[in-house]
Amino acid sequence: MYIHKSTCISPQQTYSDVDLEKLNISVNNMLNVVEPKYDDIPLNVLRRMGKAVRMGVGAALPLIKDSKNIDGIIIGTANGGMEDCIKFLNQIVQFEEGRLTPTNFVQSTPNAIAAQIGITNQNKCYNITHVHRGLAFENALIDAQMLLRENLEFNLLVGGVDEISSYNYNIENLGGWFKDEEIDNTKLYKNETKGTIAGEGVTMFVVNNCKENSIANISAIKTLHTNNTEEVAEQLKLFIEKNISPDKNIDLFLTGENGDNRLQNYYNVCENIFDNNTSIARFKHYCGEYPTASAFSVWLASKILNNQIIPQHFIKCKSNSNKLERILIYNNYKGQQHSFMLIEK
């Protein structure tokens, strides 16, 4: 599955005039997105959109405008428009279930992002929303991979979207997933305490089967549910055996390490599989933690393969070689959901 176009709205300078060296600093344990102006969305439509829908549509439109045809819209989002959802909930409670306005309700359904992209472009093709928490984006990719096997000529839009709202920040915080103490993202990997920092973002890709002029190849994906570190390491070894011939080197192991000391062992056992021919890098200090952060990691990997350089702040451990042809991504969500993705030139 070849990436031909991509957009990324993140807490960093990734949308236009991309600068991977620059690092914005988190505030109150949150990395909030830097939103672009959304020139392609009419102002009256834009005003009615919640953040998740706005970011999703805003990132998708330039890609669609730039493509001849889009034969499927496949979105991964754990929560969709969480802010609209809780706004509607607040209405229910505040007005004691009286006469309520439906806008927040309609926008709160997670499929509103894919639906709005479809409506805006009069696109009547395959349209779906995967919401499987920390593997929502991976399932979107698996769906795209299957659709491209079933229809060799298809051109698909596939993306990951999740927002921080004060509400889901509260809920995740009550669940113990963010740090109690305030830290900034440059010190995320000290790993002394539980929890991480919150992030958000949208990453959109146009993918098809055509190798020519592609940015990168998403060549393999594997998802796993377990809380057993040994099983994760075993499955990673199997993934490598199955998908990478022994004469090929994995130049970079890119991980979702997020500073939560409860999850560190998963990353340690996986890192131990590699020798000094593989660099190790991390990305959560850059985009923060959110269920579809792995979509950001695929975008980052494609940039690294094209730029042939890994900015210093991502690097945990540098290999002997300077070659960058093959990147293996491991992400872990809450110690329960795991994914491996292989990104090649």
């Binding site: 969709g80 997670p110 499929n111 779906i128 929303t129 919401v131 998802t223 796993l224």
Partner: peptide, 10 residues
């Protein structure tokens, strides 16, 4: 142990 997924298209 296989692929697990959740789908929401209303």
């Amino acid at each position: 142990k296989g692929v697990c997924n959740t789908i929401n298209t209303a």
